[in-house]
Design a protein around this nucleic acid. Structure first.
Lengths: 199, 199
DNA sequence: CTCCACCTCCCTAACGGTCGTTAGGGTAAT
DNA sequence: ATTACCCTAACGACCGTTAGGGAGGTGGAG
């Protein structure tokens, strides 16, 4: 109940000011309670932060998976391209992505280990999901041993390079990067040799 | 003299802990002086931070330019590929890149405007430099109106996507992303139509 | 139905600590 | 004499955290 409200307010503050910059008083004020009342729900700042990390990772994973699932009958290019605009929408609607990026790249140094133990599996799972999607679509022979991990990683790389700009300079510049990068990437992907049997 | 020592120590702390997380006492301790002595050289934390921003932007711009200049007779692909390993070396030797990324993507919210006014021109200048390099190399007809800004932006995107991983998970994973992404990007670039006359 | 213990949730007050910053004085070189 | 540099001492503000208590609801025992 109130624990979730605190968590949601904390998410916004952590995303904007980072772990060190966020203050429990301001979080409490957003919720409409006093600072010590937070301790009725969380043992301290660290536990609150970790709770936000787990929450964001969990919901974001679910949302991403369900996006790719919902796009099952869409052709591959549209599905991969659509992920960019989906990302932009996600970013417009909540602060999850911003929080995720911030704590992934610049976690509080004293919680580094703990945060990474949550974040790393998340990204590896994302990569495996993408690799599976690429493999299913780019090759008809499902017995081929190509694992498409490289292609998935390349896709993630251009997603990251664009998303960074989404955080940094907003949606307009994000879309610029996307439309500049995508045609090159897609042409390069189709001429892989691996993917020659598509279309 | 001592102002530079303070600046260099501050750079390391800002890179590791961010603006809010870094403390003047620790910076002073690294230099071997007491905290208030910093005020003999800088008006306050803000001014020190901005000084670091200007310093890093300035030296990094110079270093990047001189890298591309030194590679003038190298073929384009090697030059562009070499930039990745150059980045890895830079990152190994100093904290400039880490600082630059951190303050670019997550500047202290109260100094956002001021920081961006320094950072944005820097990145635009980088993009124009790359566009010029690409244009000179990919087309023999220098009167063509193609500006190669898109290609430059795509290159920057995959650089960013890889460099992010460099900060995040270190050189090993950075090189993985690079070698996964580069072949696809390069094939896509050469089949642009625009670049068809190269080799 | 009443009473009392219990639990949850929030409060005020205050703790020790660190933060950035200022005041003011000493010392050595110019 | 002035300037540059560093010091100690102390300021007020804010930090995360703890102590302790009050209000409101729940649930079992009489």
């Amino acid at each position: 109940m109130s624990a979730e409200l605190i968590r949601d307010a904390a998410l916004i503050h952590f995303a904007k000011d980072g772990y060190e910059g966020a203050s429990l008083s301001k979080i409490a004020k957003d919720v409409g309670i006093k600072k010590p009342s937070i301790y009725a729900h969380y043992k301290g700042k660290d536990e609150l932060f970790i709770a936000v990390v787990k929450y964001v990772l969990d919901t974001e994973k679910r949302r991403m998976f369900s996006y790719f699932l919902s796009q099952k009958e869409n052709p591959l290019e549209n599905r991969l391209k659509g992920f960019f605009t989906w990302m932009a929408e996600e970013n417009r609607e909540n602060e999850h992505a911003k929080f995720l990026l911030r704590i992934s790249y610049f976690p509080p140094s004293k919680l580094n280990r703990e945060v990474m133990d949550f974040v790393n599996p998340f990204f590896h799972q994302m990569q495996r999901l993408l690799a599976r999607v690429l493999k299913n679509q780019l090759t008809n022979d499902s017995n081929r041993s190509d694992d498409f991990m490289d292609e998935a990683l390349a896709y993630i790389t251009i997603v990251d390079g664009s998303v960074i700009e989404l955080m940094f300079n907003g949606e307009e510049y994000f879309l610029k990067r996307f439309s500049a990068t995508w045609p090159i990437f897609w042409r390069g992907l189709l001429t892989t040799g691996k993917g020659a049997d598509e279309k």
